[in-house]
């Protein structure tokens, strides 16, 4: 039996995989190498980790408006996350970048679950039905 919670669909689709979780926001333009999908900001808690084929769980994007193109670059380069979960509220950069990259996005999880999520957990995101499950 998996743990399920409701969430809000921002970009539809379904994704399943290992979670990569951070409590820190991300500037997609400045903090990522979009060719390989790794976080390059030494001060970020995900430094050195790859967003490729993971369920990226983070609060929201910050900074550059061009971050939307950075998300699309991840998709074109084959290193995009399978799905994105915003633990705060999905922002315009994330929503628009994922909308053209067909990366499912959800937000507004119940607070308790949002705190429980940690990296390496197996998660499924059913954005169309607004359901996130820990498998």
């Amino acid at each position: 039996m998996s743990l399920q919670v409701n969430c809000r669909k921002i970009v539809g689709g379904y994704g399943r995989g290992k979670a990569l979780v951070t409590r820190q926001p991300i500037n997609f333009l400045a903090m990522l190498d979009t060719k390989v999908g790794t976080i390059t900001d030494q001060d970020h808690e995900l430094f050195g980790q790859s967003v490729k084929n993971v369920i990226l769980v983070f609060p929201n994007a910050i900074g550059s408006s061009v971050g939307a193109y950075a998300i699309y670059s991840l998709r074109v380069n084959g290193v995009a996350p399978t799905a994105i979960v915003c633990t705060n509220k999905a922002d315009i950069t994330t929503a628009s970048g994922c909308a053209i990259s067909s990366i499912p996005v959800v937000d507004m999880l119940e607070k308790t679950l949002s705190c429980m999520l940690s990296s390496q957990m197996n998660i499924s995101v059913d954005a169309d039905n607004g359901i996130l499950a820990v498998i």
Partner: peptide, 14 residues
Amino acid sequence: SGVNYNTIGNAGVK
């Protein structure tokens, strides 16, 4: 925004 090739790269051009 998204005009500088340095920021949007080949994916942006595509």
